[in-house]
Design a binder for these strands. Structure first.
Lengths: 200, 200
DNA sequence: GCGACCATGTAACACGTTACATGATTGC
DNA sequence: GCAATCATGTAACGTGTTACATGGTCGC
């Protein structure tokens, strides 16, 4: 069974044949939002997929010392990918360094912690703006069965995630600015409790 | 410089001396929500922290062939931890298998994809209930400077995260049930667009 | 007597990152 | 001529998981 990266590669190839180089590029931008890999890892994984008969390539002598290899799915590769899609994702442990820092934040100067969260909030707000503009590029929600449905759904998730994070940063800033200093500056209003409008 | 796990260990030890075994236990439940490790990794990392002079231990001959070692922070360890807290977290690439599956979901039977998301939603709802009851155990928001502030803030983040995820699952289910079948069942109303009440 | 819990460690392997290594084509 | 882009690969290292290995105490 391929690794998750193997399936990520299959998922990209399901949308069209690509070279290892091109796969690396999509692992940077569109797919990179939820799964990334460097070219070194992609090339080695591609060789495993090849050995398992899930992909094949046509060699066209491109630039450089080696042939350029355009990979595409085999019927077995497509079948493996389809079967994988609906299997439950295998749970990977959460690892979140910011939350870990927060766990230890009682040890630090609140003003410095606030600086950390202000920087983090700025990052999230930037990404929100970026995702919103990407979302606006979709004339309407793509329907199931088109590849772009996958893009749209992933984007929705990313946007929702960034907003949750931004909310949390604002909540932290409100706590952090509220207590110890009296220098006038404090974060403007944001939701005080996550239980607000989520329903039920 | 210690690894992130090293700092996680320091963060736990800042709240009180612990054996490697006890550290493993907290990496399971409270801290495990945002950083985990197995005992094998904890023991080896503890040896690195020891070599760097960030922790020390008192040996009490406990059960088993070896001595029981109760670790505590050194002043250098505490200083390193305090300095680390307010440094920006080093960015680790997102890796989210469910979103990856979603990206490829246009290939699969919508009914089966819906099954996947229903199972996922159930998981999130369970965690929401669990976190809510944990939140209710706090009489009031702990103030900065107490260790429990870290616990409370991390819990707030986790709760907000689970709600965002559950929302996304509901949105997916609404899409998935809406289109292809006509068997009467469809997901009840949930937010249709993540841009709703987040402000700005 | 048996299983759960306490307690520490090592080794092999999988996954991921960084760095090393090569070289042609295209645009400035 | 130089830099960017296209294109493929290997090696060393760090991090994390699984499995191996040992053995005492306590409650049933």
């Amino acid at each position: 069974m391929p690794s998750t990266l193997g399936f990520a590669i299959l998922a990209v190839l399901a949308r069209g044949a690509r070279t290892g180089y091109e796969l690396t590029a999509v692992m940077g931008r569109p797919v990179g939002y939820f799964w990334t890999a460097r070219h070194s890892q992609i090339h080695t994984d591609l060789q495993k997929l090849l050995a398992d008969g899930l992909v094949r390539f046509e060699a066209e002598h491109g630039p450089g010392p080696q042939d350029k290899k355009v990979y595409h799915l085999t019927p077995e590769g497509m079948a493996a990918l389809r079967a994988w899609v609906t299997e439950p994702p295998r749970a990977r442990p959460e690892r979140d360094e910011l939350v870990l820092k927060t766990y230890a934040s009682w040890l630090a100067d609140p003003a410095e912690v606030a600086g950390l969260f202000r920087a983090q909030l700025a990052l999230h707000e930037e990404r929100i703006a970026q995702y919103e503009s990407q979302q606006a590029d979709f004339a309407e929600t793509p329907s199931l069965g088109e590849p772009s449905f996958g893009n749209y759904a992933a984007l929705w998730c990313g946007l929702s995630y960034e907003r949750h994070r931004a909310d949390w940063c604002r909540w932290m800033l409100a706590r952090l600015d509220a207590t110890p200093r009296a220098d006038g500056l404090r974060a403007e209003g944001s939701s005080e409790d996550p239980r607000r409008d989520t329903g039920h």
